[in-house]
Write a protein that binds this DNA or RNA. Sequence first.
DNA 1: CGATGGTGGTTCAACTTTTAAACAGTACCT
DNA 2: AGGTACTGTTTAAAAGTTGAACCACCATCG
Lengths: 172, 172
Amino acid sequence: MTTRWLTPEEQRAWRAYIAASHLLEDALDRQLQQEAGMPHLYYTILATLSETPHHCLRMTDLAEALKITRSRLTYAVTRLEKDGVVRRQDCSMDKRGSLAILTDEGMAVLERAAPGHVEMVRSALFEHLTPEQVGQLEEIFTGVAGALQGDGGKAASDDLPWRRRSSGQQCT
Amino acid sequence: MTTRWLTPEEQRAWRAYIAASHLLEDALDRQLQQEAGMPHLYYTILATLSETPHHCLRMTDLAEALKITRSRLTYAVTRLEKDGVVRRQDCSMDKRGSLAILTDEGMAVLERAAPGHVEMVRSALFEHLTPEQVGQLEEIFTGVAGALQGDGGKAASDDLPWRRRSSGQQCT
DNA sequence: CGATGGTGGTTCAACTTTTAAACAGTACCT
DNA sequence: AGGTACTGTTTAAAAGTTGAACCACCATCG
């Protein structure tokens, strides 16, 4: 079958998306590097742990939540552990397992960096969006994530039993 | 000033965006690594060069177009040159300058990989979007890019005098 | 029980990329 | 000429990523 090239509109949308997403990722990395001493991915690890009742998650679950390989996560957590923001603990249920736990210092780092981070997200993105566009954004990318995960994606979105937030604010 | 946290809707939109953009970038990298033997950024370099009348661009202009540092670009082009898909030529106008030129082989690689790439972009993204959403996407991210570039962004978008396409298809 | 196969997590070595700083050469302006 | 600014590269160090190999442990089934 002959290639269905992008229409000019799609072309423009794609280019805008690519440019912006790279700029955004760079900006997030720079800012968090500055304010929390770690890149965005690492910050996301802390944020993910913070949303758990006991501020901990098994390595595999964490890797799954972040869509990264276990190997990559091991590397990341090792560094975060060195930084003192995360610690590991053997899992009592499954002796193979290991839990990544957010330390108090980690929580402090998170809370210190979160306002700036949220501010950046807001000023780079939401500042310029109408409520309708926010809705569109979610709809579009939920679809994209679904399409890229082979499965429904929908199924895995509320996977973890404790993904519910006890209270307080999301650090994004 | 007390932090303006994200609303639940914004939160959802943000998470969806982050997850999807990482999945997408990974997918693009994997696919292009497979079909063109290079990551997405490198492919983008080829694609950018291909849209130029003479298939060449000065290093600084190229770096600016891709929003990456000159140092990073030097590294990338050195590799692409080794692969034979790009070559360098001294700039006659400005003896400091150096042009990155897409070779015939580079063009061939591009043309060989483009259909699959476009297909991936289409199936991961545009497949699921209404024309209105395509418009929204462009609008949203054009704004984001603008906001992140300090300047108007708009101003720099049609910067290069030859950014006009002679003919043929965009390789995305 | 005890073999078997699968899972959780880490380790290791090779590699790629990124960064920042320093540098040489060239342009331009007065 | 002299000073300043720009181009592009180099360099060394650091960081991150991958994939395979690996060990310890779980689960199951005969």
